[in-house]
Design a protein around this nucleic acid. Structure first.
Length: 305
DNA sequence: AACTCGGGGTC
DNA sequence: GACCCAGAGTT
């Protein structure tokens, strides 16, 4: 849950989530869709599916207990070098290094390496340094957490608080006054604009929902039937792409949401025509299905009245 | 090696 | 608006 997600965001959700899935076997029994639904709003939803896969694997291969070795952890779905090292060192006291965004920033400054934060050579160097530090530490878990905490609270992105830094005298970037310029920012791709034409079908207290394709943005999450395109579409084109007759679309609203790689422009319509087939949900049923944040807000705003 | 995958905090 | 977040998996 902490992957690419700020601790404060996780802290709001962690207790409820763990209460719902208190063990690997409980998560495996609950099923993937329940895990994704519990993940709603956290983003990067593939993590939820991978976590479910890890729970299944832990049950089938490890008797329901989280494996203690870094290698076995690394073999679990969704567990990479960072996550394996974190669990191994912090939970199981293994002498394994970790490198996250915080550690990269700390090491880049300590050693005054002028490179972008995602530069592969810098990242490799960080694993080496983190390895040397954890080998020399009294407690691997405490060392690893300390490195991250230092990066999160003192050696922050932007101007660091070197005056409060416990290792300032050992920091090459601080000595030469370049700490605030290291590491360099990651180059970001231009955000592509995507138009999402979203159609509200209502029938009494029910609304028509469907599941998004299993790849791409919001993969496998539920939505009001939608047509995605590079440009905004006329009603006729929306009907064609939708695959069934709509017979009149009334525009309701438009809004925009920014994701890391996309700018999603919503064009919301209401259809007057009745559609018989499909997944018609009342409010309680819809509440149990995983939706992306903007889609959930839209449904809550428009579907029940 | 580059790309894809959310949503929000912070400046 | 830029930049980042206790990254991993795919192409």
């Amino acid at each position: 849950m902490l992957q690419q997600t700020q601790v404060s965001r996780v802290a709001e959700r962690f207790e409820v989530f763990v209460g719902q899935f208190p063990s690997a076997s409980a998560m495996a029994a609950a099923g993937e869709e329940a895990v994704v639904a519990a993940w709603e709003g956290l983003g990067y939803y593939r993590r939820a599916r991978l976590l479910y896969g890890a729970a299944v694997q832990i049950c089938e291969l490890h008797g329901g207990k989280v494996p203690r070795s870094t290698e076995a952890l690394l073999a679990l779905p969704g567990v990479g070098r960072y996550t394996a090292g974190s669990v191994a060192s912090i939970a199981f006291d293994r002498r394994t290094p970790i490198v996250d965004g915080n550690v990269i920033r700390v090491v880049a400054r300590l050693e005054a390496i002028d490179a972008a934060i995602d530069d592969p050579a810098l990242v490799t160097r960080c694993w080496e340094t983190a390895g040397a530090l954890v080998r020399a530490a009294k407690s691997p878990g405490v060392l690893n957490e300390s490195l991250m905490e230092l990066g999160a609270t003192v050696c922050k992105p932007g101007p660091p608080s070197c005056d409060r830094c416990p290792v300032r005298t050992q920091c090459a970037a601080s000595r030469t006054g370049v700490a605030s310029q290291i590491p360099r920012p990651k180059r970001r791709p231009v955000r592509q604009i995507v138009h999402l034409h979203t159609i509200l079908f209502r029938r009494g207290d029910r609304v028509l929902l469907r599941q998004r394709p299993h790849r791409g943005i919001w993969a496998g999450l539920w939505e009001l039937p939608s047509v995605e395109s590079a440009d905004s579409l006329e009603s006729a084109a929306i009907e064609t792409a939708l695959g069934f007759k709509v017979g009149g679309l009334r525009p309701l609203e438009t809004f925009k949401r920014l994701l890391t790689h996309r700018e999603v422009r919503f064009h919301v319509f209401e259809a007057s025509t009745r559609v018989r087939r499909g997944h018609w949900c009342d409010q309680a049923e819809a509440a149990k299905l995983a939706m992306a944040k903007p889609m959930r807000s839209l449904v809550d705003r428009r579907a029940w009245s």
